[in-house]
Design a protein around this nucleic acid. Structure first.
Lengths: 199, 199
DNA sequence: GGGCAGCTATGACCGGGATCATATGAATGA
DNA sequence: TCATTCATATGATCCCGGTCATAGCTGCCC
């Protein structure tokens, strides 16, 4: 998702995170740009009725909370989904660095644009009326590994929350798709999708 | 949405648009940053089954297709929803200007961050399971006018497409909400929402 | 003016997603 | 090790959103 961006950043603060620990909560003053070095983070919003929606998931190598660079406060919770550590780049530091490095701000912008495109794809997916469609769309978007399988990288329950579905609907859709031969689960968090003939 | 951004931009190309005309189509080479000067534009994606999802709507004063600054091709259609004209700032021009103006790239990034936040709010809305909830959430997000009403600025049918709902479900939700006293329509595209006591 | 397209609106029907309940297996921590 | 929590899984039921049909209305263009 971001290859060159972190390389040119000024030194940041490291912070270790345990599973379930919050890096920040809604209402906290904005941290700045967060780079996940190890483990995984989830950006979570809890609705008033207790529904849990996952707005973004970042694994090692991804940046996180990019938009908070330009906000005074966070408006979501950041929860550690897999233990690891992150590096935090404060706003002021980054701003200063951007003034020295003509290209840095442009790369930050490019990075935000990529996130925006991803978010639009997500919105498009959430507008699909059927659980199976949302699921397949999301799975097809995952990068296939050399052996042809795709790793979801989290529990199916979390994936359900990311798709705006109840986990029951997700398991049912999985079972139906598997019966229909449109999907095969291999191990805990891997799926194989049939090769579609190029249109 | 963007106050200072256009002011510091280099001169761009103007283009007039008629209702229904496409500024660009999916697959076209990226135009660059588009500023809507008059009228309204919609970023539309047509699904394979013919469903029409509105990904973004921009009215006079808003920017449009910001992410295309960093993409080689468009992947949505841009359709004129209300006749008017736009100014187009090419990528190369903007990039050059960013090299001269240390702050411009940073402002572009800030702008993209704001769009990202808005898009996340949209995704959150699309994850709401009930039509009435999505509708109310969207309407509450509209800025109220001095008289307390809110202008939706488009047809209810378009709003339905933006909410990922069929227009029938939208009309039904509207009627139900109106019966329940949670909403009152005033004229063609205005609603009044009851004042909620601060929690 | 007349005709046509598109928006607004509502009814009937069906399928599927939310919810609640329950059960088993897996993982995690004391 | 054992217990507790959590993920996985499936069944029953209800509700509601999608779809199709129909109709009045608005606005627009010739």
């Amino acid at each position: 998702m971001n290859d060159d961006l972190p390389l040119a950043l000024p030194p940041g603060r490291d912070r270790r995170l345990a599973r379930g620990e919050a890096l920040f909560r809604a209402g906290d003053p904005a941290l700045g740009l967060v780079l996940v070095r190890e483990g995984a983070l989830e950006l979570v919003r809890l609705s008033s009725e207790g529904r849990r929606l996952i707005l973004h998931r970042a694994k090692a190598g991804d940046t996180f909370a990019e938009a908070s660079l330009f906000e005074s406060h966070h408006h979501c919770d950041a929860i550690c989904a897999a233990p690891g550590f992150v590096t935090i780049y404060g706003v002021a530091d980054l701003r200063r660095a951007a003034m020295a490095d003509l290209d840095l701000a442009w790369r930050v912008a490019a990075h935000l644009a990529a996130r925006l495109v991803a978010e639009r794809a997500r919105a498009e997916r959430l507008a699909l009326p059927h659980a199976a469609d949302r699921l397949l769309d999301m799975l097809h978007a995952l990068p296939p590994e050399p052996d042809g399988t795709r790793r979801i990288g989290c529990s199916w329950k979390s994936l359900a929350a990311e798709l705006g579905l109840s986990h029951e609907a997700t398991y049912r859709a999985l079972a139906r798709l598997e019966r229909a031969g449109l999907l095969r689960r291999e191990g805990r968090d891997r799926v194989r999708l049939p090769v579609v003939p190029p249109s």
